[in-house]
Structure formats: structure tokens, C-alpha cells
Amino acid sequence: MSSIEVNGKQLETDEEGYLLNRDDWSEDIVDVMAAEDDCEITEAHWEVINFLREYYDEYQIAPAVRVLTKAIGKKMGADKGNSKYLYELFPYGPAKQACKYAGLPKPTGCV
């Protein structure tokens, strides 16, 4: 079993680092995961992470990247609703990496 240490607590993850229990999520986890990826978290990252958490609360699924891009565009404007912007924020893949930080499962259909 893989795990991630946050504030001295071991939280279970799958082998790719996604949290197994969504209830384990806290904002501190984002910093720990981002540090492992050498990624500096900004307000812009948080916008996407919070958006994903709200999307999951409503629909119980992690959106595919195409759906995420479209939905971000609707909510935050076309300058953010494009894959260039999202890949710059999350170079490992906006759906994959941002979902991991948000404590969501890997998006359905994302291999």
C-alpha cells in the first residue's frame, strides 16, 4: 500500500498517488503533492482545484480533460478555458494532476 505523509499522518493512496479516501483531503495535502512534483501552487492552481472539488461534489465524477476545459471556460472565461493555460498550470496533465491534488479519483477514461 502506498501512502503520503501530511502533517505527520500517513494517508493511503493508490500506486499513482491518488488518495484512496476522499475524506482524508485537506489543503495541506496540495502543498505536499506539489512539492513532490516540483510545482509551485498559486491562486490560479487553486481556482482549478476548487473547481474540480465542486464538480465532484455535484456529479460524483472527475471530469474528462475536454469537459474540464469547457467548464472552466464557461465559469472563468475563454482565456482560462483552453488546454494551453491548463497545461501550463498542471504540466502532468490538467485532469490527471489537478484531480490528484484535489483528492479526486483519476478521471474516468484517463489512462
Partner: peptide
Amino acid sequence: VKNFSPAYAALGDY
């Protein structure tokens, strides 16, 4: 068991 019925409302997004 997970309630997956909310996901039907996302079909339009897809």
C-alpha cells in the same frame, strides 16, 4: 454503495 445517479446530470457536459 456509491450513488452514481448524479453523474447522469453531467452527460450534457460530455
